[in-house]
Simulated scan of single mutants.
Amino acid sequence: MEPHPTGVRHPDRPEPLAPPGAAGVIVEEIRRYPVKSMLGEALPHAQVTPAGVAGDRRLALRDLTTGRVVSAKHPRRWRAMLTLRATGVDPVRISLPDGRELTTGDDVDAVLSTLLGAPVTLIATVPPGATLDRARPDEVLAAGVTAPVTVDETPLGGGTTAETFVDFAPVHLVTTATLDRIAGAAGAGQPADAARYRPNLVLRTTGVPGFAENGWVGRHLRVGAELVLRVMAPTPRCAVPTLAHGDLPAAPDALRVPARLNRVAPVPQLGPLPCVGAYAQVVHPGRVEAGDPVRLD
């Protein structure tokens, strides 16, 4: 996004994300992931609270051996999480690869412990000092998902006070311009699938360059009639986008391309990392629907 021609942005006169004469920007998809690191669901509309999309990442599995939150960011250990799909809110339904379906009222712990090959328990409260294991993505790319690589213990929710199992911030968004840029650089015959990057909002853009989200940090997005988000930082990527997601096959280029084209520092102390999309906090909660217009203040 180019700077405002006067050098000053007027909060009472939001400028469009797309240039004059373009079709504008809309919410193309709304996504929710009721259980952290499981596949989620697309929604026609949702209420967005200060904690994010209602029902998003409200549950997680806890590894009873280490005490850490289970995450496919450690693919050698937990990539099977992406064979499970969680939908709904109360109760949450968990669909298994063999077609069975559990709800949160069933004996979920025993079934999932057997499927994942480790003792786990489903939790709804974020433990104090909650952490997860994150394999270094460059090493995963080089050695493969089954190889032993360096794994870092990483805290959860550093960009929010909400009691949910988000990695950093309540809302994650990505533009179709960025997805198209990744697909084009990878030589794919179709657009990059947003599901690999696990966003809450997919924004359909026109006339906007790929990785435009980098330039939105510190600015507000007005989504529909009520929702206002503040963009906090580009989203650093782990190995998860490269993994098989349900019926989607493994795709190493989902990380290789941003590693080549969009290494930026989401915060100065981390240094340059491959980033796709952006994290946002909720300034004003509200309802969002697919097709809602989006404007940048």
Rank of each mutant, 00 (worst) to 15 (best):
E2W: 14
H4S: 15
P5M: 03
V8M: 07
V8N: 03
L17M: 04
V25T: 15
I26N: 06
I30K: 02
R31Q: 14
R32W: 01
P34S: 06
S37G: 04
G40F: 00
E41G: 11
E41Y: 01
P44W: 08
P44H: 09
A46C: 14
Q47E: 15
P50K: 09
A54E: 15
G55D: 10
D56S: 12
R57M: 07
L59G: 07
A60L: 00
L61I: 08
L61A: 11
L64S: 13
T66Q: 04
V70Q: 05
R76W: 13
R79V: 05
L82C: 09
A86S: 05
A86K: 00
S95Y: 03
D98R: 02
L102Q: 04
G105D: 13
D106I: 12
A110G: 13
V111Y: 06
S113I: 11
A118V: 14
A118I: 10
V120Y: 08
P127Y: 02
P128A: 15
A143C: 11
V145D: 15
V149Y: 11
V151N: 00
V151S: 00
T160V: 11
V171N: 05
H172L: 15
H172A: 15
L173K: 02
T176V: 08
A177Y: 10
A177P: 03
L179N: 02
D180N: 12
D180G: 08
A185V: 09
A185G: 07
A185L: 14
A186K: 03
Q190D: 11
D193Q: 12
P199H: 15
P199A: 15
V202A: 12
V202E: 12
T205F: 05
G210L: 10
F211W: 13
A212G: 13
W216R: 05
R219P: 01
L221V: 00
L221C: 05
A225E: 11
E226T: 08
E226W: 01
L227I: 04
M232W: 04
P236Y: 01
R237L: 10
L243R: 07
G246M: 05
P252N: 10
P252C: 08
A254T: 08
P258E: 06
V264E: 07
A265T: 02
P266F: 04
Q269K: 11
L273E: 15
P274F: 09
C275V: 00
G277K: 00
P285N: 05
P285A: 02
V294N: 01
L296K: 01
D297L: 07
